[in-house]
Design a protein around this nucleic acid. Sequence first.
DNA 1: CGCTAGCCTAGAACGAGTTCCAGTGACTCG
DNA 2: CGAGTCACTGGAACTCGTTCTAGGCTAGCG
Lengths: 204, 204
Amino acid sequence: MTAEVKPAALQLTERQEARRRRILHASARLASRGGFDAVQMREVAENSGVALGTLYRYFPSKVHLLVATMQDQLQHMHETLRKRPPTEEEPAARVAQTLMRAFRALQREPHLADAMVRALTFADRSVSPEVDTVSRLTTAIILDAMGLDEAPTAEQLSAVRVIEHTWHSALITWLSGRASIAQVKIDIETVCRLIDLTAPTPAR
Amino acid sequence: MTAEVKPAALQLTERQEARRRRILHASARLASRGGFDAVQMREVAENSGVALGTLYRYFPSKVHLLVATMQDQLQHMHETLRKRPPTEEEPAARVAQTLMRAFRALQREPHLADAMVRALTFADRSVSPEVDTVSRLTTAIILDAMGLDEAPTAEQLSAVRVIEHTWHSALITWLSGRASIAQVKIDIETVCRLIDLTAPTPAR
DNA sequence: CGCTAGCCTAGAACGAGTTCCAGTGACTCG
DNA sequence: CGAGTCACTGGAACTCGTTCTAGGCTAGCG
């Protein structure tokens, strides 16, 4: 990671950066209270001391705002995870361990997780760039966890994409109460087996 | 003292069943025009010759309506797929072939697919039973495609769940323009490898 | 110093999902 | 036959995301 890749924010002044932070903070706070529905644009604006129109200048829709919130949280998590890399040996186990850590972190703020994930999957084409950024962040977290020596192969990247798919979707089923935590764990462990399967030096 | 009954499936008169059909039909038609946003409750009501309040009696929210629409379409697809079972030999290939067929069918009505999938992933707890029905239908389609002789093992069921996760999430990335059709194909083929991996009598 | 350009604020206004209400018609039970 | 019940109708009303308008404040520039 070299420079800030904020697309919407080109050279913000300090006051503007502070506003942006206040908005994201208010968004996360409201989200952790009551999830997606609790993040109401008027309230976000009020809580961050900004006019409604200004909020919309910074984030052109509620989904944009929540996806940006997710970016923020993910960056946080990425750093945290980096500080304590997984203890397992095998790449598959390392990824599973990392994702379960992330999952436990989300469990602590289920409403926030709900808001962010719902926004992410509900996002339409107009939010694609931002969603893509989130996706790249997630990919980076997984690749980090794998602890590869060399660049990943195309096959491995496919496996990582599938793991991401499973991660998001499993999260949704858990958030909507249709899957238990144990089931999410099993699903993650199952999909992580793909990593062994696509290792360049097969241990099959 | 009459017990509260689920309005969906229990003891509808003929006129009511006809109304329900008209509503679902109007919903699908509007969805195939312009996706999620084009399905407007007032318009659905008008197009199916029903008052708005009545529409809400049958389907308590737009998401409920669209998930029910998906149920309907999935049932259709299940029958169609049954009539032409996959030609491949190996279970993994059979499932991949079946899902790609389903995918091509969705490509023909991308807006409809958009509306249904967005509704599905956006659904909150109040829609859990309906979403679960959709999930069971999908599971049935995949299990059918596998062409098992015996009941699936727990491991296989995990693999099927992961395939479902991947299916939904890959669909979303395609619908929001962040993945190409080729990429969806690769992801599906990748995840289907889990089937071989969890086969009770390993084919390799 | 005054002007113009932007960004910001307050608040009205609009659209679509959802809820509510008064009335109507049909069917059942007494 | 009469009364009550219940689904349906038409439409008003409410909420919240989003857009629009008018005016104010700041900054840079002549």
